[in-house]
Design a protein around this nucleic acid. Structure first.
Length: 469
RNA sequence: GGCCCGUUCGUCUAGAGGCCUAGGACACCACCCUCUCAAGGUGGCGGCACGGGUUCGAAUCCCGUACGGGCUACCA
């Protein structure tokens, strides 16, 4: 009987969800689903995290945003490492009884002092044959045997670690609490995890964990260590230096499918799955094509510029109503949503991120648009600006409300500009700045249509007065 | 310091000894299109870290060097 694969994702709650974690979660998710297996979410909850359940909620909602839904049949959890302490300790006891572990009464200070006086590095297995029994303050250490461990890794191949450089590491602290490596392995064993896919930084832990698996009488899982994500300095993305919180990208209006797609292209390529050479590829195809064997070995730079390019592409693919709805959370509450829906199609293919929406169309929702002084000076200093605006006012005034449409507004301005021997590109500039306060924005005439006759004429007059004054 | 991992355009990658005059995507530049900005089109810039092998032939295999990274807790 072959067991269905069980992938586990084990984030530690820290108050935000790291984009690197998002990527490994996505990889686990793709594999678990394609193979009909399970994605197990196990929270490595520390004391601090246990007192802050909102941290865990944050992880779950971040995963849901990515499309990893906890009500999907392939999803299991969340389970909490702290719920398994009993198993951890039972396993420790077995390890002690079978001789794979021994008690040590040296404190970290003792070890340091000893190492110094003996001129050695680290612990050195001083208590391993002393036959010390359990007791307060005594740590349980793993008896690392002679030899070496080969970690068979799906992305990196075989990696050999010489036991000579692995200390007799601690399994249970002097205070009786299990340590990460033990807890990790025991959790995975009790949950019958078959595949451990995680970031490369865990690779040095792996031989220790594999020894525990073996000592407990189990064959180790399939390992896969994917490269870390780095910043432009090629350092691992860190909370302090870099923008790593997935939530921040979500809150700025990056689309989840864009983020998912982008994250998956880091260290992996859809290859032939993408016939036209584009890296824009849907989740279904990712799920179908993703293979750990194809993951690159070197760290990948998290490039926000490219993320933005993906985001624009995904934004464009939205239907107009989907787009308007997606923008909604980023709009001030008092804005007229019907009016926004009118202009939305014209900014849809222009927005880098959804949170930019208010800046693009804000002039349509306020009484007095903010005037960009630089834009004003640059545009209104031309000699044709004032006369052209005056002509525009008079010709636009002649238009009835019933004729106040983008096409007629455009035709009228084209008529005017001919007299000044201007191209539309030049002629529209003073009007645009007068009305919106900016040199860039949505298509002018559509915006004027939305703005309305009265307000447009008012703003044009204000501008003429300002030039005169 | 020790152990481990890595190194193809600026960035993400394709590339499993001849298909490579090293392909694509993002970025950048130019031109076209165009009511600004986008989008789209065309073109351009730009790379196998270095040195030795192996081979008729190496981006691809081996060794070394350099550089980068990760880990080095009774943290997780």
């Amino acid at each position: 009987m072959t067991q269905l694969p069980r992938y586990r994702f084990a984030p530690s709650p820290t108050g935000f969800f790291h984009v690197g974690g998002a990527r490994t979660a996505l990889m686990n998710w793709a594999l678990a689903r394609r193979q009909g297996g399970t994605f197990v979410l196990r929270i490595e909850d520390t004391d601090e995290a246990r007192n802050k359940p909102e941290w865990t909620d944050g992880i779950i909602s971040a995963l849901a945003w990515l499309g990893i839904n906890s009500d999907d049949p392939h999803f299991e959890g969340p389970l909490f490492q702290s719920d398994f302490v009993g198993e951890h300790l039972a396993a420790a006891q077995r390890l002690f009884e079978s001789g794979h572990a021994y008690y040590c009464d040296m404190t970290p200070e003792d070890i340091q002092a000893r190492a110094k006086s003996e001129g050695v590095n680290g612990y050195g297995g001083w208590s391993r044959d002393l036959g010390i029994g359990p007791g307060p303050g005594r740590a349980l250490r793993f008896r690392v045997p002679a030899g070496s461990t080969v970690v068979v890794d799906l992305v990196r191949g075989d990696v050999t670690f010489d036991h000579a450089v692995i200390e007799d590491f601690v399994l249970v602290r002097g205070n009786g609490t299990p340590v990460f490596n033990l807890a990790n392995v025991v959790d995975d064993i009790t949950m019958r995890i078959s595949h451990v896919v995680r970031a490369e930084e865990h690779l040095p832990n792996t031989p220790k964990q594999q020894m525990i698996w073996n000592a407990l009488g189990h064959a180790p899982p399939v390992w896969a260590h994917v490269p870390v994500l780095v910043n432009e300095q090629r350092k691992k993305l860190s909370k302090r230096r870099d923008k790593v919180a997935l939530e921040m990208y979500r809150d700025e209006g990056y689309l989840a499918p864009a983020m998912v797609n982008y994250l998956m292209t880091l260290g992996w390529s859809p290859g032939v799955a993408s016939a036209d050479g584009s890296e824009i590829i849907g989740w279904d195809q990712i799920e179908e094509a993703f293979r750990l064997e194809d993951v690159n070995l070197s760290p990948a730079f998290f490039d926000v510029k490219k993320l933005v390019a993906f985001n624009k592409e995904y934004t464009r693919q939205l239907t107009p109503s989907e787009f308007a709805e997606a923008c909604d959370p980023f709009l001030p509450d008092h804005w007229d949503r019907a009016r926004f829906r009118q202009i939305a199609p014209f900014i849809q293919e222009r927005l880098p991120v959804l949170s930019d929406a208010p800046a693009w169309v804000g002039f349509l929702f306020v009484d007095n648009p903010d005037m960009d002084d630089e834009a004003w000076d640059k545009t209104m200093s031309s000699e044709f600006a004032q006369p052209l605006l005056i002509d525009t006012i008079s010709r636009y005034s002649a238009l009835d409300e019933g004729d106040w449409y983008a096409e007629s507004l455009k035709a009228t301005l084209e008529d005017i500009m001919a007299r000044y021997d201007l191209k539309l590109g030049k002629a529209q500039a003073p009007v645009r700045v007068a009305v919106s306060g900016q040199t860039v924005g949505p298509p002018l005439f559509e915006a004027l249509e939305v703005l309305g006759r009265a307000e447009t004429l008012h703003r044009l007059k204000v501008a003429v007065d300002r030039i005169a004054g």
